[in-house]
Design a protein around this nucleic acid. Structure first.
Lengths: 198, 198
DNA sequence: GTAAAAACCAAGCAAGCGCTCGTGTTAATT
DNA sequence: AATTAACACGAGCGCTTGCTTGGTTTTTAC
């Protein structure tokens, strides 16, 4: 499923790389900086990754796999009420945005630094995730819970959620759950009844 | 008001730089590439800008000034109906996102490459723009047109709009006006009456 | 206990980077 | 006609970049 092996050592390297890519940006993170943060010399880096680009790809893939796993789990646990499912998906999205923040920020800002091969690989993951969302949005539309063009709704909602990485402060007063519920409430209008928690 | 002079020649250079920064990213756009696209040699570049960084700042400032001008104009022409004002502001936002697309994309992706001085300068422009939005969002909340936390609503809406640069196709079937109206409709729920156009 | 495999290192190459500098060439001002 | 300021040039300095190479150490497997 993944492009290359996933030894625990490699996983740790990817985590470190993600942090540096966020702090400095991909282009400004030199292989020497990466190596030092990993406790090895720059030459040794290329035993784990074919080139710098492959590290970027691995980082982004990590985040996407995590998002997919979380979203599928959330939907499996949620019932079949459209509102609960929408809420659960939004919550899962915010949670992966938080716990795998570095990877997602890198995906957001450095996507264009990928070469064609890596991009092709990752686009499939992205498409799978977006079609998950589209299905849940469609359910809410069919139920009359929300209104509008199905494609636009999905894009606007995911846009609003993704943008949170630019301002959300995990140390602040609001939890991802609360945030998700506020967004859903914003879309459904003033709710006459509270959302039932599964 | 602006950080430096704004001769027509310089304006053209900034436009070219914006295009290259979008195509290649700031770090990968070399001063030689910039110079060649401008029809001069790399050394001559530094007669117009103190350093590469200053070009980035000028590009981003261009976009922000344009956004501010358009938003203020739109609000001045709009009446005092909260829904019309919200719609007008969203439309103005999408229009500047479209006509000054390069500058805004650069602002989005390369903000972190700014040095502290440039960032301080630009943050004031950004704050002015956001408080414009906050005022209009507050009006809509007070009128009962939309619901939710005032800060969150502003952030979610601006997030949804800004994210459009990642998927919006100006050659597609939808105009910025139509897009703006769809977003407002999404927030206000199923409108019992059509929006009056000023 | 030993052989194979995996991880690592020191050294450095070729290329590209932002930027400087001394000089020449226009174009506007006096 | 003389002065000045703005713009452009060519050459290149000092430094950093991603990546390679040949050889050593550490870990794993039997």
């Amino acid at each position: 499923m993944t492009l290359v092996n996933a030894s625990p050592r490699r996983k740790e390297l990817v985590r470190i790389a993600a942090r540096l890519f966020v702090e400095e940006g991909f282009d400004r993170t030199t292989v020497r900086m990466l190596a030092q943060a990993m406790g090895i010399k720059s030459g040794s880096l290329f035993h784990h990754f074919s080139d710098k680009q492959a590290i970027l790809c691995a980082v982004i893939e990590t985040g996407m796999q995590h998002a997919l796993t979380l979203a599928r789990g959330a939907l499996a646990e949620a019932g079949c009420s459209p509102e609960v499912r929408l809420d659960a998906l939004a919550k899962a999205h915010l949670e992966t945005l938080l716990t795998e923040r570095n990877a997602h920020v890198v995906a957001l800002y450095e996507w264009r630094r990928l070469d064609d091969a890596s991009r092709d690989h990752l686009i499939h993951l992205r498409d799978a995730y977006e079609s998950l969302w589209q299905k849940v949005v469609d359910e809410s539309l069919d139920a009359g819970l929300i209104h509008g063009d199905r494609l636009l709704v999905r894009r606007f909602v995911l846009g609003a959620l993704n943008w949170t990485v630019r301002w959300y402060d995990p140390a602040g007063p609001r939890s991802p759950e609360a945030l998700a519920r506020e967004l859903v409430a914003m879309l459904t209008g003033p709710a006459p009844e509270p959302i039932g928690r599964a």
